[in-house]
C-alpha cells in the first residue's frame, strides 16, 4: 500500500461563462480505493471527472496522478492512457466491431502488434462477461453490452485509474445490473475507481467513500455507512432521504 495517494485533486476551479461550476474541489484517492460522487444534477460532478483526464481544462487547481501533474502536463495524451474513462453515452466507435473497438487504442496509441492486441481484446471482453460479440457492431448490441464493451476498451489500456461518469444512466433498468456487476468485480480486483452515479445500492455496498457535491463544493465526504446512517450535514440528509424515498433503502 503506497503512502502517497494515487490521485490528488487540489482546489479545482472551473467556470463556464458566468457559471461557477467548480468552486475549490479537493479530494484524493489511494490505490485500490473507490469513491462515488453523488449530488443534484448540474453541480459539476461530471466536470470533476472531465477535468481529471483534461477533456475539460480547469481554470485553476492541481490534479496529480502519482507524480505527474495533469493540468500543466505537456503530453496529456500519454497521461490519458493511464486513465480509463467510461461515460453515459458509451462512445463506442460505430464503424468498428466490438473487438476492433477494444483493439483500437492498443494498435494506434500503444502500437501493439495485431495478434497481441487481439489476445488482449478477447481477454478483456471475457473479463466483462462478453463472449460472443467479437464481430458484432455497436448498433447490434444492447445498451448493457455496449457499456461493457466500453469498459473492456478502457481496461485494455491497463489504466491506473478508472473514471465512470453515470455509466448506467442511459440504460434500461434490466440492463443496469450487468454493468454494475462488472464494476463491482473490478473494485474487488483492486482497481482504483472514481464513479459518478445515482445508483445508491452500488455506492453503499462497493465504495470506500461517498462524496456529496452541491453548488460546486464538496458538502460532505465520508464512509458510506456514516453517510447513509447519520450524515453530519443537513443538506446531505435531505438529499439522501429523497433518494431513499425514490429508490428505497439500499437501492437495487
Amino acid at each position: 500500500m503506497k503512502n502517497k495517494p494515487l490521485v490528488q485533486v487540489k482546489n479545482l476551479k472551473k467556470s463556464f461563462g458566468d457559471n461557477l461550476v467548480l468552486d475549490g474541489i479537493s479530494f484524493s484517492l489511494n490505490t485500490g480505493e473507490n469513491k462515488v460522487i453523488i449530488g443534484p444534477s448540474g453541480t459539476g460532478k461530471s466536470t470533476v471527472l472531465n477535468c481529471i483526464n483534461r477533456l475539460i481544462m480547469p481554470d485553476s487547481g492541481e490534479i496529480w496522478l502519482e507524480d505527474k501533474e495533469i493540468v500543466t502536463a505537456e503530453n496529456i495524451n500519454k497521461i490519458r492512457q493511464e486513465i480509463g474513462y467510461v461515460f453515459q453515452g458509451f462512445g463506442l466507435f460505430h464503424h468498428l466491431t466490438a473487438k476492433k473497438n477494444v483493439m483500437l487504442g492498443l494498435r494506434k496509441v500503444k502500437k501493439i502488434s495485431k495478434n497481441e492486441a487481439e489476445d488482449i481484446a478477447r481477454f478483456e471482453l471475457n473479463r466483462v462477461g462478453l463472449t460472443d460479440v467479437d464481430d458484432s457492431y455497436p448498433a447490434q448490441l444492447s445498451g448493457g453490452q455496449k457499456q461493457r464493451v466500453a469498459i473492456a476498451r478502457a481496461l485494455a489500456m491497463q489504466p491506473k485509474l478508472m473514471l465512470f461518469d453515470e455509466p448506467t444512466s442511459a440504460l434500461d433498468p434490466e440492463l443496469i445490473g450487468e454493468v454494475l456487476n462488472v464494476m463491482k468485480k473490478l473494485a474487488e480486483e483492486g482497481m482504483t475507481m472514481l464513479v459518478v452515479t445515482h445508483e445508491m445500492g452500488f455506492a453503499r455496498s462497493v465504495s470506500d467513500e461517498i462524496i456529496f457535491m452541491e453548488g460546486g463544493k464538496i458538502v460532505e465526504q465520508n464512509h458510506p455507512e456514516v453517510m447513509f446512517k447519520g450524515p453530519e450535514n443537513e443538506r446531505t440528509r435531505q438529499f439522501l432521504f429523497k433518494l431513499d424515498d425514490l429508490y428505497g433503502k439500499g437501492g437495487e
Binding site: N77, I83, Y85, H94, V109
Partner: peptide, 14 residues
C-alpha cells in the same frame, strides 16, 4: 457526434 472525440481522446489519441 462529439462522443466519438471524447472516447478517442480518453484512450490517448491525438
Amino acid at each position: 457526434s462529439s462522443d466519438q472525440f471524447k472516447s478517442a481522446y480518453s484512450l490517448g489519441m491525438s
